[in-house]
Structure formats: structure tokens, C-alpha cells
Write a protein that binds this DNA or RNA. Structure first.
Lengths: 232, 232, 232, 232
DNA sequence: GATGAATGAGTCTTCATTCAT
DNA sequence: AATGAATGAAGACTCATTCAT
């Protein structure tokens, strides 16, 4: 196997169109789910993506698999954001930057709105694990530097994002502003103020496993008991 | 027969049953909307309340009017909670107690999930105004005592509640715990730490009017604005 | 059993109220069915009669039996009208008077709108037979006098009434006028005119605009004109 | 390849099926509304057309828009009939032929049954205007020839049709006969008869028994086979 | 005997999914 | 591989009928 050919030889024609459709579909789904919520119709998503219904069902087995995929991609983008933020000089600054990115970025949502509707899948679990370790790593520095409360964990950050990304109607820009406002308010509460004593936070910090228990649909909660909910 | 008869002679039979149903329906609707979201079916709500579809439609003209009523009642309960909390000795304690109540009480939700779906109504506006002034009054003491950041307003508290009451699946008790956890975290961020300096919060504090713009459906946002009975 | 008491000793109290309700219910049903058609709700009829649902179902087994009764009563009133009209001096005048009465009277409808919905019953058959013979008798004189076409029968008159009483929306008075107009037009066609003079048609000819007023639902006539999403 | 391809290349497959469905749906709706009245369920109409519920709602936004379309098409067919009839040699014959066509044709109904239920629409207004002028033109000749009463207008003809097309249950052929019978009767009344001879009325006079066959619902037609339909 | 709340089957409408071209 | 028409199960809502007081 001497010389490998150009790794991805710039796909042409049909292939190229297909890839473009993939991306457009993903973006459209993300937007639609974020704006409207789980109740957006598949038709609406397909229309936003500019493709026909048939093409949609060629790529995804249905609405649920699509949303699962969106969820995975969102987590991956968030993971990437955490890694990028880790390059900041200051440990606290890295944390702040990550959270600001996560709260502002239009395409890096956790789609908490869907929480409880979708069951967990292997792909979600893997993406989740990667996100977990990325955030954990992000927390190490500020924690060891003593600027972050010891009882704040990685799952706290995720849950916080879930709360902050609650769908609220309004102009996108204004909503972004408000999210940043409350993010900073909460970050203040997470910080170890050097001089002032802090009351202990009520219950134990959730761990990663519990997050899954919280936002994956439990088997007995299923809407349609025999519904197939696989990937793609 | 000297005294007057009991003014409201404790209704009996059907009448009594009707009243009980009223309450059960309200509670059921609140729960169902909180847990499942706007997409709960009316059938589901009626089932939870233990009444038939017809009885539901005897009391409310539809799903929307029901949700409006739930919204109003929720606000009124919240208003009442604010008044009760105001009796606390300490200003800060009063604020904390109110927020804890609001976040924990099973029946005092703002139902932010419905935000943007329902249009405003006179009754909502009035309940909203009452809630506003009750919270405003609650903020006076801690603000003048200097334990509350000056740039925190009444609308901030409401939006915070909206965020904290984001629908999250899980055991009710555990969810309550987590909400309290993040509530305290944020309250820490709202407090004026006497010694340490605070970074300014990003954007201006939202005022009450803006809240309505955020969570009432605007007329032009209607799904099908001018639907009439035209051709085809 | 020596002397029988006054045959109908002017019923009192409950009994009297019941009779009054009977009449009110009959009138209300007649009106409602005439105005709205078969689709009027039983609730609406009961409301117009000012009685509760229970009282309605005490008297009639349901909507269908009620309509049957209304139908029978209508036929009886029509039969009576035919007998009264027979007293006219002129045979042709008697016929005309009967038809005018039948077309105008608010309570003597054949309720053709219900035609085809209700099955026959013995009571209907009997009332029908009586009406038949009354009309037959009414036709004898003009027929023998040679002013009525020989090939016109009693059933023709009834079918004509059915056609003329087609439910048409509009002001009651205007509708009455139009019915008389077409009645006279048709009577002309039924007459054996030895000479050719013609009586003028009663009301002015409707113009095209009026047709729309008649059969288009006017915006302000909407069943629920301003239905919006209010409280309860 | 000199010539241009077939402008409308006779659509194939799904496209073709869709067109066929359009026509079938229109016919089915017409029939169902004529026979049953406004209360026919959409399900029934779809079933008659041999299509699913969804396909129905793909084409029309609901029952009302469908009926509006049917109404417009009916008027257009009627207009066309008036234009065709105008080619008759004799002015009176043209009028008679038009009315006979209008009363007999299975697809050219004014659907008076729907009158008052549907609001006007631009399309209805336009179709209406065209029908108006077509009938007006049809009346010119007989009126100027002095064989038509001067006080008969175009709207009279339409209202007459409305009356004559009153829904009456029975065998289609028999109903057609009866309609023609009363049409001719009325036409006699519309004619200026200088001499007094009269044409014989077409079909034999219906007898009393037949009336019942016409307007009583037949047992096998019952909506709910076991429905009790007794007196009181 | 009167009342009106409760019931649930039926109607209109939507939307996720399939399938023939 | 793309398209969009067809499908039918499910949801919101109505109304004839029953029943407990």
C-alpha cells in the first residue's frame, strides 16, 4: 500500500450534492428543533432544508433518529468547544469562555427540550462520555487553583446549560444577552470568593450517570412501547 | 332562629362533585403540562383528573383556555408565596425563602414551557402585575440592606424561575433537590459579597414589559394568521 | 261512579307546569329545526324551551322521537288549515288560501329538511292519511269547476310545499315574501286559465345582490364571531 | 428534432393519479353533499372518492373550502349550460332547455343545501356574476318576444332551481322526473299565454304512498342499524 | 318531576411515514 | 437517488344521552 490516494478526493456530482444535503438537513433540524421544539413537523424540517420527504427518509429512519443525531452532533461540537477553550491561559477564563460559547453558539445546543423524549443510544453514550471528560479536564485547573468551589462538578455545568438554554421566545440577540446575564450571575455563585465564606450547596453534585437517568427517556415512560428508536 | 344560616352551606352531591373536579382538573393539568409539556393530549389530562372528555370541555373551552387558567392560578399562588415570605425577619431570608418555595412547590409553576405559545389575556396581565409588585416589594429590603446586587430586578427573579423550572425528567424529589442546588448557586451570585468586588452583569436587567414580550405569543407570530374560509 | 267530575279540571301545580313545558318544548323544537336544520343540538332546543336536559328526556326518548312528534303535529296543523280553508266560498280561493297559509305559517311546516332522515312511524302514517284526505277534499271543488288542471293531485301540493319550504337563510319576512312569489307563480301554472289574463306577482323581483344576501353566510352572522383564546 | 415537444405531455404515474383523484374527489363531494347534505362527514366523502383522509386534506384545507370549490364548479357548469342552450332557435325553447338541463344534470347543482352555511368568496362572486349574465342573456329573447312575463328576472330562475333541487330522498330517476314535473308547472306560470292551451305535464302524478318512499328514511339506510327510533 | 353535570362515541384535522414513479 | 402524493393513526373538540341528587 504505497501511496494512498487523496484521502477524500473532493466528491463530485450526486455524491457532492448528497453531502451538501446532509449538512443542510442537520442545520435545518437543529434550528427548527431549537425554535419550535419537539413539535416541529418533519415536513417543516425538510422544507427548511430544501429537500423532499423521500430524501429525508433516505437519510434518517424517522424523526427520532434525526433528533438523536442532532443531539450527538451537538455534544461533539460542545466537546470541541471545551477543548478549544482549554487553551486559554487562565483556568477560570477557560471555564468562562467555554460556558459563554456554549450558551451563545447557535449550533451547539444540548437540545434539552428533547430531554426525556428520546431514549439513550450507544452513539449518545459515547458522545456524552467524550463531553464529560472534556469538561472534567476543563474544571481541573480552576479547581486546583482554588477559584472554583470544590463541590461543583462537570454534570453541574451541563445541567446549568440545560437550564440556560430553555427555549424562550423573543429576538435571538436579546435572548443571547439574557442567557449571558444569568450565566454570569451563576458563575459568580460558583466562584470561590477568597475572602467570604460560602454556604454549602444543598444536595450532592450529580454525577454523569445521573444525567443520563435524567434526560434519557426511561423505558417505562415510552410513548409507544414498541417504537424502534435506533440511530439514523 | 336567631342567627343567619351558613352563608355557603357546604354544597352537596353533584354540586360538590363538580367543585372537587374543578380542583382535580387544575392539579392534573398543572402536573401534566409540567411533566410532558404543551404536547400533552387533552385526553391524557382528563384521564389524570379522572373525568371524561365531556366534563373537561364543560369547564374549559379547550386546551388553550385551560392552560391560560393554569398560568393565572400559578401566578396567583406565586404572588401569595411572595407575600407570605415577606413576613420573614431578615430581608435576605425572605427572598431566599420565596425562591425556594417557588422552585419547590408542585403547584406554583410559571409553566414557562408554554411561553410563546399562548397569547396574553387580560387575566394574565392582571395576575402578572400583581406578581410583579409583590416581588418588587420583596426586593426592597435586601436591596436597601445592601445584601442584594443593585442591578438585580424583579424580572430577573421571574426569568430565573423560568430557567430553573425547565422541564427535566426524573424523580420529582431528585429534581427538586437539583433545582434547589442551582437556585442557591445563583443566589450566591446575586448577593453582594461585602468584601469582594463584583464584575458587572452583562446586559441591562429586563423590565416587566419585556417579560410579556418574551412569553406571550405575539399576534404576528400566529401560526396561521389570516386563516379564513377561502378557496381550496 | 255516579257523576263524572269536570272532564279536564284545569290542572294545577306540577301538572299544569308540565303541560306548559310540553307546549313550549314543541314550539321551541319547531323553530329550532326550521331555522337551523337537523343539526341543531338537543341542548339548544332545551335551552330555547327553557327546560333542563333531564326534563327533555323525560318527555321524549331522544332527538329523533321529538322530531317525529313535531312532524306529526305539523301535519295535523296543516290538516286543520286545509279544513278551515275549505270554508271559503270559491273553490279556487280555498285552495289558494290553504297554500298561502301553509307557506307562511311559522308553525305549520312539513319540516322537509328532515326528509330522508327519519323513518316512518304509525303516528306519522295516520297524520299523513288525514292530511291526504283533507287536501283531496280541498281539490275536489276547483277540479270540478274546471279551474284546476285535471292532472294535479294532492301529493303535488305537498311536494310543492316541500320545495317552497326549503330552508333559505335571510330575514323571515323577506323569505315569506319570496315563498309567496313562487307559490303564485306555480299556482298560475296549475290553473286552467280559460282566458289569458294573469294576476300580478306579489313582491318585487329579487335582484342578483339579494341572492347573495340570502344564501351566503354573512360575516356578522358567524356562529361564534369573535372567538378568541380567552379565559375558561 | 424540428418540432416542439408536446406542450403538456400527458402526465404519467403519480401525477396522473393525482389528476384522476382530483376529479373523483369533486364528483364524490358533489354527490355526497347533494344526497346527504352538509352533514356528510369528510370521511364519507373521502371513502366515496376512494382516497385516504390525508389525500383529501392535501387538496383542500377542509370541508368548507371543498364545498366552496364544489359550489364554484357547479356554477360554472350551469353557466356553460346556459350558453349552450342559448343556441336554440326559439327563445322560449332555449329557456326551457336550460332549466331542464339544470334540473336534471347530476353535476350542475347549486347545492342550495349549503346555503347560509358558507361565506362568500371572491371566486364564488365571480362565478356568480358570470352565471348571472349568462342567464340574463338567455332571458332577453323570450322576454322581447313577449312569451315571458315581464316581471320574471334572472334571480327568479336561480331561486326556482334552488327550490327544485331541494334534497329529496328517492331513486335518482324518479326524483328527476318529479323535478321536471314541477319545473314545467312553474314554467307555465312564467309564460305569457296569449291563447289558453296548455301542454300536458310530463310524468304521472305521484300518489300518496310514493311520498313516503320519497321522504322517509328507509330502514336499510339507517345510520346506526340498531338505533331505536320510536315515538316519544 | 326537574335539574344539569358526566360520559364517550363520533367528527374534523394533522402529521409521521411509505411508496410508486 | 429524489420527489411528493397517499396513507391512517392520533388529537382536539362536539353532542346525544344517562344518572345522581
Amino acid at each position: 500500500m504505497p501511496a494512498n490516494p487523496a484521502p477524500a478526493p473532493a466528491p463530485r456530482g450526486r455524491r457532492r450534492e448528497a453531502e451538501r444535503n446532509d449538512e443542510r438537513l442537520l442545520v435545518a433540524a437543529h434550528e427548527a428543533l431549537s425554535e419550535v421544539g419537539w413539535s416541529v413537523s418533519v415536513t417543516e424540517i425538510a422544507k427548511r432544508a430544501g429537500i423532499g420527504m423521500g430524501s429525508f427518509y433516505r437519510r434518517y429512519r424517522g424523526k427520532v433518529p434525526l433528533a438523536q443525531h442532532v443531539r450527538v452532533v451537538s455534544m461533539e461540537r460542545l466537546t470541541e468547544a471545551a477543548r478549544v477553550a482549554a487553551d486559554e491561559r487562565d483556568g477560570w477564563e477557560a471555564l468562562v469562555r467555554f460556558m459563554c460559547d456554549a450558551v451563545s453558539a447557535p449550533t451547539s445546543t444540548l437540545l434539552p427540550l428533547i430531554g426525556g423524549i428520546l431514549p439513550g443510544t450507544p452513539a449518545v453514550d459515547e458522545a456524552s462520555a467524550r463531553l464529560h471528560s472534556a469538561i472534567d479536564k476543563l474544571l481541573e485547573r480552576p479547581r486546583s487553583e482554588g477559584v472554583l468551589r470544590q463541590d461543583v462538578g462537570a454534570a453541574d455545568l451541563v445541567l446549568l446549560l440545560v437550564h440556560l438554554r430553555t427555549r424562550i421566545p423573543g429576538l435571538p440577540e436579546r435572548i443571547r444577552q439574557l442567557r449571558l446575564r444569568y450565566l454570569h450571575m451563576t458563575l459568580e455563585g460558583m466562584r470561590c470568593a477568597p475572602s467570604s465564606e460560602r454556604a454549602a450547596l444543598p444536595p450532592p453534585c450529580p454525577d454523569w450517570q445521573e444525567l443520563h437517568l435524567l434526560w434519557d427517556r426511561r423505558p417505562d415512560t415510552r410513548v409507544r412501547p414498541d417504537e424502534e428508536t435506533h440511530e439514523k
